[in-house]
Design a protein around this nucleic acid. Sequence first.
DNA 1: GATATGACGTCAT
DNA 2: CATGACGCCATAT
Length: 105
Amino acid sequence: MRRPPYFQRVWAAVRRIPRGKVATYGDVARAAGSPGTARQVVWALRAGTGLPWHRVVGAGGKILLTGEPGMEQRLRLASEGVAVNGNRVRLEEHAFRFRSRKRTP
DNA sequence: GATATGACGTCAT
DNA sequence: CATGACGCCATAT
């Protein structure tokens, strides 16, 4: 069974992030089965639709989006009960732990 | 195949 | 903490 295309794997990972939780790009990449592809996660997020993209933040819980998009992300996170301090999220409190799923053994 | 893009991660200064 | 540089890598053209 051919693995789903990269984007699809990323979308699946992002969709697993529960409400009120966040994950970093690196974590999403890892959860998608391709560690070290944080930048590609960006492509996937832009290409996708209807994704909880606001639950994806940078390393250390930093909000990387700037301007209006960044504002919207903060609003959306706040709506889900995620406290945003400055442009940072407390990962210790809201980081989502993906199940360590190695690829199809 | 080559080049450009990108909401990154990590380390050095 | 701010900045710069480099590495990494899937897509688009």
